[in-house]
Amino acid sequence: MTPPAAVERSFWLWIAAVVVNLVGSLVSLVTTPPVSALSSIVGLVVGVLFLAIVVFLALRLRQGDGWARLTLAVLGGLSAVITVLGLLAGAGLGVGFSALSTVVGFVQAALIVAAILFSFQAPANAYFR
């Protein structure tokens, strides 16, 4: 069965969120002072493993697996909320995030929220039944 447009959009939004995260992480790694480069590399490796799981789940979502949709909704929702709250709290505490980190965080959160919303539209719900 071919996935409906809402599921396809959700899939591609998940992929876009992964790409945005990877690009932001790579730019951050390149621009990080050498003193903290090791911790950045470890963070990047852990991040890539997490993003690989997200891609796997997005592929399963596209194939109609409801458990993947639910897992992405929970993990993605938590990730979006924690990212936005972290950026807002950091700004309130005077923590200076780079403009790139801020933009990447908000763009990724927006992509994730949109992906979740598309995956729960009426045509998608019928597909997962």
Rank of each mutant, 00 (worst) to 15 (best):
A5R: 15
A5P: 14
A6I: 09
R9L: 13
W12K: 08
I15K: 05
A16M: 10
A17K: 03
V18W: 02
L22E: 01
L22H: 00
S25G: 11
L26D: 00
T32R: 00
T32D: 02
P33H: 05
P33Q: 07
P33E: 04
P33G: 06
P33S: 09
P34V: 04
A37R: 00
A37E: 00
L38P: 03
L38I: 02
I41Q: 02
L44Y: 01
L44V: 02
V45C: 03
V48T: 04
L49R: 05
L49K: 06
V54T: 12
V54H: 05
V54Y: 08
L57H: 10
A58N: 13
L59W: 11
L59T: 07
L59K: 15
R60E: 13
R60K: 15
R60S: 09
Q63H: 14
G64S: 10
G64H: 07
G66A: 07
W67P: 02
W67S: 09
A68E: 10
R69P: 02
R69E: 03
L70V: 11
L70E: 03
T71L: 13
T71W: 06
A73S: 10
V74R: 10
L75F: 13
G77Y: 13
G77R: 14
L78E: 05
L78H: 08
A80K: 09
V81E: 14
V81D: 15
I82F: 10
I82V: 12
T83G: 09
T83V: 07
G86Y: 07
G86W: 03
L88G: 07
L88C: 08
G90E: 04
A91Q: 14
A91G: 11
G94K: 13
V95N: 05
F97T: 01
S101H: 04
G105F: 00
F106N: 04
Q108M: 08
L111G: 06
V113R: 07
A115M: 11
I116T: 10
I116P: 09
I116L: 14
F118G: 05
F118K: 04
F120H: 12
N125P: 04
A126D: 13
A126Y: 10
A126P: 08
F128W: 08
R129S: 04
